[in-house]
Design a protein around this nucleic acid. Structure first.
Lengths: 190, 190
DNA sequence: TTGTAAACGTACCGATCGGTACTTTTAGAG
DNA sequence: CTCTAAAAGTACCGATCGGTACGTTTACAA
C-alpha cells in the first residue's frame, strides 16, 4: 500500500470535480480542498488534464463496482437482478450528494469526440450497457442486445431527469417502462 | 427590426457556446468569432452570465419551434405525429454540427439547482415532455402523462447515447421501445 | 454637410488560470 | 541522532480571465 498519498489525491479531487465541475475547479482550489500541496500534485500528474483522466478512470471502476454490489445486495438471485436496477438508481438519486453522472458532465466539458475524457466516458456507458445485457441474459430473456440498449436509454434519461426537478417521477416512469419492455423480451413473447 | 445587432450577437454567441462550452469560451474569443466588439457586448449585457442566459432562452424557443415544425413537416396528420418524434431526433443527431443538448451541457456547467441556467434548462425539458404528452393525447392514447414521461426518458437517453458513439443504434433502440410503450397505452389496452 | 448615436479598437484593470523553482519541514529507517 | 526522501510552503511565471475607460470610426438623419 505504498501510493496512498496519490490515491488520496485522486479520491478527493474526484469529489471536488464532481461537485464543482472540471473547468470551474482551479488547481489552487484543489490545494485548499484536498490539503495536498501543488508541488505533490504535479509530481504525481504532469498536467491538470492527467489528474482529471485519473479521476475519471477511478470513478468508472468505482461506480460500476458500486452499482453491481448494490444489485447483488438487493437481489441475490441472479435471474431476478434485472428487476432491481432502478431501485439502485433510486438509491443513487436519493443520496445527499448526488450531482448527476460524472461522465455525462465530462463529455459536456470536453466535447471533442477524440478527447480522452470523452472516450473514457463513452467506454463507461458501453460497459454499463454490457452489464445490463448480462443481467438480461441471466434473467432468461431473448434479444438481450436490443433490450439492454432500450434499458440503457431509460437509465440515461432517468439520470438526466433526476437532475432536473423530480427524481422520484423519473424513477417511477423508468421502472414502469422497464417492466413493459422486459415483458416484451420474454422467451414466449413475439 | 431595430435590435438586429443584439440578436445577431446572441445568435452567434449561442453557436460558440454550443460548440465550445460556456466556461471554456472567453469573451475575447466571442469578440473574435462574432465580429462584435466587447464594448457593444457589455452595452447589451452587463455580465457574461447575462449573455449566457439570453442565449439559453433563445435556444429554448428556437429548438422547440424547430422540433414542432419538423414533426409537422414529416407528418401533417396530428393523430400520427407521435410516431415521428424519433425521426426528428434522427435528423438532429445526423446534422453535421450536432453536439448534444445545450441544456444538458448548461446544467453540467452550472450545477447549483437554483442557478438561472439550471432552471431554464429544467423548464425546457418540462416543456418538451408537455409537448410529447400533447402529441400522445392527439393520438388518442390513454394515461398520456405516464407515457410522455417514459418517452421523455427515451429521448434524453437517446441524446446522451448519440453523443457517445453510435447515434444510429440509439435511435433504433428508442424507436423500438417507443412503439412498445405506446402500444401499451392504447385505449383498448391494459 | 453637419449632428448624433451607435459601434468599434485598443489599451488597460485586478484576479485568477495552469504550472514551475526553490527552500523548509516532516517522517521513517539505520 | 543522523541520513534521506517525500511532502509542504511560498513566491513567482506568462497567459488569460471577466470587465472597464476612452478615444475613433461608421452610418444615418436633418
Amino acid at each position: 500500500m505504498r501510493p496512498s498519498r496519490r490515491d488520496e489525491l485522486v479520491q478527493k479531487a474526484l469529489q471536488v470535480f464532481y461537485r464543482n465541475g472540471f473547468h470551474a475547479t482551479g488547481m489552487d482550489q484543489l490545494v485548499r480542498e484536498t490539503g495536498i500541496s501543488k508541488t505533490s500534485m504535479y509530481k504525481y500528474f504532469q498536467t491538470k488534464d492527467d489528474l482529471i483522466l485519473a479521476c475519471l478512470h477511478v470513478r468508472d471502476v468505482q461506480f460500476r463496482h458500486w452499482f453491481a454490489n448494490r444489485v447483488e445486495a438487493l437481489e441475490p438471485r441472479r435471474e431476478h437482478q434485472l428487476g432491481v436496477i432502478f431501485d439502485v438508481l433510486d438509491e443513487w438519486f436519493s443520496s445527499p450528494d448526488f450531482k448527476g453522472c460524472m461522465f455525462i458532465k465530462a463529455a459536456a466539458e470536453f466535447q471533442e469526440p477524440d478527447h480522452p475524457a470523452h472516450m473514457i466516458s463513452a467506454r463507461h456507458k458501453c460497459l454499463m450497457v454490457d452489464y445490463i445485457q448480462d443481467l438480461a441474459h441471466q434473467a432468461g430473456l431473448v434479444r438481450t442486445r436490443a433490450l439492454a440498449g432500450q434499458l440503457g436509454l431509460l437509465i440515461e434519461g432517468a439520470i438526466i431527469m433526476a437532475r432536473f426537478g423530480n427524481a422520484a417521477q423519473a424513477v417511477k416512469d423508468a421502472r414502469t417502462a422497464a417492466k413493459i419492455l422486459s415483458a416484451a423480451h420474454e422467451n414466449d413473447g413475439s
